[in-house]
Amino acid sequence: MPGVPQLAMAAAVKIGLAIVLVGVLRRGLHRRCWSFLIYLLAVFIYSTAELVGTVLYNVPGLQWPQWVWSWEFWHFQQTSFEILKLALAVELGARVVAAFPGTWRLARALLSAALLTTTAAVTFGDAPQHPLLATGTIWLFAAVSLVVIMFNLPLHAWYRALLAGFVPYLFVFSTLQSILARRGDDLATTLGSIDQAAYLALVGWWAYAAWRAEEDVTDISPVLLRRLGLARG
């Protein structure tokens, strides 16, 4: 069972998630990426249930806190998060190229290749499933970035914040940690111990991105911004 510092950190993450949620809804950023809103809600609900389960774990007559701390629940929860992150990456890709029909073919090919490779690795590979799914999400984000670089596409600040937040976190605390753990490296344990703090930092980054003022581009007509998908019509 977690100690007081972990519980305090978990509570801080919930508060952070609530701040991000309010910021996203207030600025209408959920309309830019619905999957992220669903992901936020899922993380908020699951982790709140986990926290409440921890507090009520020893209350006599209550069965569900034990279930919340079971491997089945953890596995179900992680798989849901991984699938939501994959969906988020696909939605982000689709939205970034939506205003540019000439990029659709390349974007479709890259995203399909990343999804197919992830599915094949999860189905036929002997590696653990969760780091594989996280790595697949990183590929999808990288595919989106490649299309953006190739066609010099404009990228909304919210999408940049999602890319810059998710990819380093997933790489260090999922892919890298899993590799180190398999090698029996002590660094994996260290990474595991700071994972919660890193996630809190990630939530802080999203909160900053969700609450900061909209990027202002001078001398550009609103019609063009709408055409480029940077402003809503």
């Binding site: 690795a121 790595t135 380093p168």
Partner: peptide, 18 residues
Amino acid sequence: MLLWVLGVLGFVCLAVVI
């Protein structure tokens, strides 16, 4: 081995995105 390959690819992707 598979995880190593994925790790290297993941690192390349990280570099692209950053």
